[in-house]
Write a protein that binds this DNA or RNA. Structure first.
Lengths: 172, 172, 172, 172
DNA sequence: AATGAATGAGCGTTCATTCAT
DNA sequence: GATGAATGAACGCTCATTCAT
């Protein structure tokens, strides 16, 4: 792939992340092209369908999350994801399945593995109760991201809400 | 309002609840009219925009929830709402703000009051920790409904997830 | 169906016949709407897909042909169809299957029956040789319509070409 | 012209003949490039517009036909062309003018001359009636190729259809 | 000369909304 | 009040053509 194509692909992804974060997955592909400063055909050359574009954003965001998971403990990562939920509206919305046909088993799987490692560490450190399993941790994470995203929580509310969950994880 | 108009309004609301529950808020207004057995013009006469129709459904669903809240304790109500989340897809999706412009301060306020009463009772009974406030209870409720709706949780996962939250509420 | 809808449906069909006759089946549906003096949505309300519109034209043209067949002998009908081929470009082109997904077995079947009756009469009158079958008469008819349509034949050429075929039908 | 350019030109023509034979003239130029194993720019360097490419194929096919005409009598050539019509979908379709702007006076002229020679031989041999002229022979040829191409004739129908025309040519 | 990324007009289609009947 | 036909902006997507690399 040529250098300029590479650059355009990145610009389209950046624009798409911003546009879909702002307007949700129903924003038009034209708007993405406009924001990226390319013609509509260029978007479709890189991502043959809109769903492909959405899937590509998701994958990138999830990959970033996995990286960030490696540098934090479970509670810090939980907090970070919730704080970023609004900025990463697309992830939350698409995980929520807004009518799009997107399959990202791998990327989601990697995130789950990363969280699984954090959970084991937390259990080993005695800060999470033994019977807590990965499945409900993921469920809580997804839920609270959705909640934070759409609820327009301020920092206080976010902290208090997470405090309840963290208390539950410790003293299950 | 004429009797037949009254009747049509109710049929449209029923149809809309069913249609939007099945297909989400992106379902077409025509489909609602078809299911209600009225012409499209009649839908728009009763609800001048699609958002008005969605708001009306929401209001009705929230009112039902308030009634149900009066007959349960906090944990039971929490569990009920999560269990119904999928069936009432519309509530969750619209609370999630899928691109629609909907404001329902009153109906949401009533629900909040009802949950507030449950919270006080729970605190009085000593099954919820003193510092837990209504705001985070509502936040958790909304979040977990979203999560349950879009996550396709089975009963076990739902129970385990709620168990974490309930533990947190008790031993905050 | 309302009177105005009926009228619009007819106008759309007329416009479509003219437009597709002039530009072939690849002409845009917008152009049909423009020529009919209606908005694009109206065309799609009456004919949910472009193929439906093309099929409707075909059906109407074939029906007209069947009527005309009833009032002529085989040679006259043959001549008439060839003479009209250019004006009815769409029939010829679509019978030629220009990539469209159109099925009109009934209408085509009726035409075939009508030609079959003409053939029997012609055989009875002794102006067509006994072994000539309907299949090849239809094949010749379709072929020469195509030829006349695309070849831009003048009247003389048309007459001389048909003369060969008619001679062949008589003295097979 | 460089040797590799020469080679590319031939490969593009071969690919185009195959692609357009399979999908008709509406097949995309990209598909031709793909099949030829060259980039799309190379196709447009050799043939500045799609129509130029189609014209080039036509010319080549017509040239082949002229050669084949030299080795057969009128009836055999007629039969051959009809039999090949489907395989050479492009010729028939483009002669049919599927919206393309193509002019090939020379190549068509050469074919016409070749057929003219066959006609003279046939007349001299007494197997074609004296008044039959070249114009209607060409018209019949073009027509029946079209018919065979789009009608999906089996061998029997093709034989019977041609039999009528041949009878007409002999006993005009 | 070849590449292939970029362009952008154009297409078929949908659907919230309006308004004549 | 009810009907449902009409509207037209907007969308996802295609593809002939251009041009920087």
């Amino acid at each position: 792939m040529r250098a300029d194509a590479q650059r355009n692909r990145a610009r389209i992804l950046d624009a798409a992340e911003a546009v879909f974060a702002e307007f949700g997955p129903r924003a038009s592909t034209e708007e993405v092209a406009r924001r990226a400063g390319v013609a509509i055909g260029t978007v479709f050359r890189h991502f043959p369908t809109k769903d492909d574009l959405l899937a590509a954003i998701m994958k990138r965001l999830l990959t970033q999350l996995v990286e960030e998971a490696g540098q934090r403990d479970l509670f810090a990562f939980f907090t970070l994801m919730v704080a970023q939920a609004a900025a990463k509206k697309t992830v939350a919305d698409l995980l929520a399945g807004s009518g799009m046909n997107i399959r990202l088993p791998d990327a989601v799987g990697h995130l789950e593995e990363a969280v699984g490692r954090l959970l084991e560490q937390a259990r080993a450190a005695g800060v999470v109760a033994a019977p807590v399993r990965l499945a409900e941790v993921m469920a809580l994470l997804a839920s609270v991201c959705q909640g934070a995203l759409h609820g327009g929580w301020d920092e206080q509310l976010q902290a208090r809400t997470l405090a309840v969950i963290f208390a539950g994880l410790k003293r299950y």
